[in-house]
């Protein structure tokens, strides 16, 4: 090929690359503009309403057999909180750990692990779907969240249940922030919504959220807060942390994670 041809070919290639890059750069620009993000996010409300309408408010997630339990369940997010207070609790096997339940409740109370274990419980073998795309199957035993909420009594204006956790994520570019999550009353009162203290028949191990983690089987993994220290009942999420209703929600993820 002569030089002219090569140069022309290179120019042509470069022009093609530029033409392709233009709409891509446009998409990146739209991705970081507030108005466009809120337009895109309007689909979340549709997902929540239509999926609940279609699937029903009492629908149970499929349950699996012992044989289907994942031999190696992946642990994502924090696998060991570095908070010294948490580590002190962990060293004595959470003997003095207590779960605080407060906010818009009639009788704010705190519970030890033994007290939680004495309440109505549920055991279920369910599939855990991570927002990244993978799934693992595990067996969980825990206190039904509905039983816990009935014990403390919800005030009439209660709307969301917030789970405050012992672990923090971030660091690097971002200041570390405490993990938290929230669900509404529809999901809080589902039969399979539990605060689990056991996994695959043994005490909940630290990488999976010891001593207590949430299981909301109709949503993705990031909703299922690990290392839960406090349950707070609120009427409004915008006053907590970034206002999105959860650690990942404050960083752009959907609050409704049913898909």
């Amino acid at each position: 090929m002569d030089d002219r041809g090569t140069i022309e070919r290179r120019l042509l290639l470069r022009a093609a690359a530029a033409a392709a890059a233009l709409p891509l750069a446009g998409c990146d620009k739209l991705s970081s503009s507030d108005w466009f993000r809120s337009l895109l996010a309007s689909a979340e409300g549709a997902n929540l309403r239509v999926q609940r309408l279609l699937a029903g408010r009492q629908a149970l997630a499929p349950e699996y057999t012992e044989a289907e339990i994942s031999p190696r369940f992946r642990s994502n997010g924090t696998s060991e909180p570095d908070d010294p207070a948490y580590q002190a609790l962990a060293r004595e096997n959470f003997a003095s750990w207590r779960l605080a339940v407060d906010g818009l409740v009639e009788r704010p109370t705190s519970f030890s692990l033994a007290e939680l274990a004495a309440m109505p419980s549920r055991t279920q073998i369910t599939r855990h779907d991570c927002v990244e795309g993978w799934s693992c199957i595990g067996k969980w035993t825990g206190v039904r969240l509905s039983a816990l909420l009935d014990t403390v009594g919800l005030k009439p204006n209660a709307r969301y249940i917030v789970f405050h956790c012992a672990d923090s994520l971030g660091g690097g570019f971002e200041a570390p922030a405490s993990y938290y999550e929230s669900i509404d009353l529809v999901d809080a009162f589902r039969e399979q919504t539990i605060l689990a203290y056991a996994m695959n028949g043994a005490a909940l191990p630290i990488p999976y959220g010891a001593p207590l983690r949430l299981r909301v089987e109709n949503q993705l993994g990031y909703k299922m807060a690990k290392y839960v220290m406090r349950v707070e009942v609120v009427d409004d999420l915008t006053r907590i942390a970034g206002g999105g209703g959860g650690y990942w929600e404050d960083r752009g993820y959907a609050w409704y994670a049913g898909i």
Binding site: C27, D28, S31, A43, A46, R251, G252, Y253, A254
Partner: peptide, 23 residues
Amino acid sequence: SWATIPSYQDLATGRLWHFFFAW
């Protein structure tokens, strides 16, 4: 990166686009 929206790694934003255009 030329095959994805956004071009940089950002799962949350990819999901925003995906579910809006799925509707």
